[in-house]
Each structure stands twice: as structure tokens, then as C-alpha cells.
Design a protein around this nucleic acid. Structure first.
Lengths: 89, 89
DNA sequence: ACGAAGCGTTGCAAAAACCCAACGACACGT
DNA sequence: ACGTGTCGTTGGGTTTTTGCAACGCTTCGT
């Protein structure tokens, strides 16, 4: 978390894991790290290495930008179905 | 370079820098690291943090996968103009 | 010939990421 | 009530990335 304190990095790990019914331990095993490391990433304790980020993205079959991003993620749900407020109809 | 020794990560830093006429020091300043760090990345001494990778990609205006990849990059030149051998015409 | 600029590389110190063991909290099934 | 599983978190250690200073090499301009 070096100079990224002015520009943090967000991630969708928790959501993606929930979507696929993956437990922390399961994801940890899939990317060959400890479950605590997954926990630390989810709660933002620190950032992953590029190596680990790639392994994680490979598990989910997603590009890096879909899992990690500089600006906070909008919920996938509203992104797919739209927000109730947007039309104000 | 932890577990990535079986699956290394390649990067196009040198080429991208040359394309835009950026010196090591210039790129280093743009992403706020030391020039030696750029050198270490280019020669594969170690991998960048995700934070640094993002800053680099921002400078080039490219997605992460365009700068860092798990399989070696084909030269941009042949990728754009094609290889002489392919037709064998 | 000289200096400046860029590259390539080394060695050591600091910071960040990661490992590992352990504990408590909560939900669930029996 | 008890065990199991998942989560959340902590503390102390190892590994990797980064910072920093320094040196040698080449090219270019003067």
C-alpha cells in the first residue's frame, strides 16, 4: 500500500467468491496462498502482487480490471439490472 | 517472483518506452519510482506490485494485459503488419 | 578530449507482501 | 450441548519489492 494511499485499489474478491460459492480456503488453495492472505486482501489490509493478482484473475476467468480497480465498484446487481432511481419515472 | 517461477510474467516496458520516446528516468518519474526500479522490472529481476503495475498502465493508457502477460509477447511490429513467412507466397 | 545523457548493474537498507499458528465469534446440523 | 465449518483478526517471522548511492559502459555533441 505504498503510494496508493491517495489512490487506493478496490477489489471484488468477496463478491466474486460469493457468486461462485467459493470459500476463502478454497480460493486460497486455488491460487496457492494462505486463507489469511485472502482475508487480508478482502478487507484491504494490503494489495496483492501482480503475480498473485494474475492467479486470482485466472481462477475467475476475468481480466485484471474486472477484479481490481482504482475506483470503487458499482454493485454488479445494479450494473446488470439498473438502478431504481435512474429513471425516476 | 514467488511461485511465478514456473509461470513467469513478461512485460513490454522496454518496447512501450521506446515507442513513446520515454527514458527510464522519465517513466520512473511519471510513476514515482526510482529509475533503477524500472531497470529491474525490464530485465525481469522481479515483478511489480499491483499498485505500481496500475500506475505504469495508466501512463501508457493501456490495460494491464497489454503491458504484462503470462505468455511472451509477439513483437508489435509483426502483430500489426504480419510476418513475412506466414503466406510463403 | 571532455562532459552530459542514457543504459546496465551491483550492494545494502527499508517497506510491503506473504506465511503460519492461534484465538474468538457466529451459524448450522446432530 | 457439542462438533464442524466459515469468517475475522492478531502477532511474529520470512520473502519480495522498492529506495538509494555508486560505478562502468556507450553515444552524442562541442
Amino acid at each position: 500500500m505504498r503510494r496508493g494511499k491517495d489512490l487506493p485499489i478496490f477489489n471484488r474478491l468477496q463478491v466474486l467468491r460469493a457468486e461462485r460459492g467459493l470459500t476463502r480456503a478454497a480460493l486460497a488453495e486455488a491460487v496457492e496462498v494462505n486463507p489469511q492472505t485472502i482475508g487480508a486482501l478482502e478487507r484491504g489490509d494490503h494489495y496483492p502482487s501482480l503475480d498473485l493478482a494474475f492467479r486470482i484473475c485466472e481462477v475467475f476467468g476475468l481480466p485484471v480490471e474486472a477484479v481490481f480497480s482504482r475506483n470503487p465498484f458499482t454493485p454488479l446487481s445494479t450494473q446488470v439490472y439498473g438502478s431504481r432511481q435512474e429513471g425516476t419515472e
